[in-house]
């Protein structure tokens, strides 16, 4: 068995003294692991950094074996972000979420494209946070837990949408939401194509996708939200959530 595809490194775990078990996220193969001989060595370690775009050739005698990867670097995305704390945190968070949520060896083209879009935004100038929330929305949709943001679940209107029901994942207008606002998740305007991507909006977006990922994609397999993703929220908090390690209690 053999295939070659381009993808992103999601993580490399040491195996034995010099090898690594590497997880690659490709468009056609999804999240796929394989053994990389010498993966902990000098030559390959820079290549196997999280977020790097690589060409992976997977080989195994039988399809259900772990198999081994031959990996070549296409773009060293991680190296460009090492100095930028927030972007590096986003990269680590996105890879950790992908690694935790995606079942192995199943293609998730939409999630992959959104992930690629996020990596591109992280490497460019300008805002990246909306792309991060969109990637998680795409991940949810591809996993079968997509949010329906097209119209209000109560009134059927498609303007003035401001909340999402945590139970159904459907949008609700501000008026219809008024009686039980504190039980709903805020819907940031940028997900509807309008509205700023300021800290408050990003925080709302991260809480929104985070809540669904946690309840549907992670709890189902007995996992918790990766620490890297929890920390990411700290970059958008009004109070310094990183230094204190204590965030204000979530009003929802």
């Amino acid at each position: 068995m053999q295939w070659t595809d381009e993808g992103f490194v999601l993580g490399a775990r040491r195996h034995g003294e010099t090898s690594a078990i590497v997880s690659v996220f490709s468009r056609a193969r999804g999240r796929h692991a394989g053994l990389v001989r010498g993966g902990m060595g000098r030559r390959l370690r820079p290549v196997l950094q999280v977020g790097n775009r690589v060409t992976a050739t997977w080989r195994a005698r039988l399809n259900d074996q772990l198999g081994s990867f031959a990996i070549e670097l296409v773009a060293a995305e991680a190296a460009h972000l090492l100095d930028r704390a927030d972007r590096l945190a986003a990269l680590a968070a996105a890879a950790a979420v992908a690694d935790a949520c995606l079942p192995e060896r199943h293609p998730y083209a939409r999630a992959h494209d959104a992930f690629a879009g996020l990596i591109e935004r992280l490497g460019a100038e300008g805002a990246w946070a909306p792309a991060f929330v969109r990637w998680e929305l795409a991940l949810l949709a591809d996993l079968g837990f997509g949010l329906d943001l097209s119209a209000c679940a109560v009134t059927g209107r498609n303007d003035g949408l401001a909340y999402v029901s945590p139970r159904t994942g459907r949008a609700v207008t501000a008026e219809a939401a008024a009686p039980y606002r504190d039980r709903l998740l805020a819907l940031p305007g940028f997900l509807l194509g309008a509205g700023p991507g300021d800290d408050q909006a990003v925080r709302d977006g991260l809480r929104l996708t985070g809540s669904f990922l946690e309840r549907h994609a992670l709890a189902a397999v007995g996992r918790r939200m990766p620490e890297a993703r929890v920390r990411l929220l700290g970059y958008f908090s009004p109070r310094d959530a990183i230094s204190g390690g204590i965030t204000a209690p979530d009003p929802t």
Binding site: R45, Q49, V50, G51, L82, D83, A85, A89, A92
Partner: peptide, 28 residues
């Protein structure tokens, strides 16, 4: 100079932000 190493460095720098010390890192 890995994603994990630098994530840790940024985290530690953040934690020391209030301490009033110079925080530097090795060159790459």
């Amino acid at each position: 100079a890995t994603v994990e190493g630098q994530t840790t460095a940024h985290y530690v720098a953040e934690r020391l932000a209030e301490a009033g010390v110079t925080v530097s890192r090795l060159a790459h």
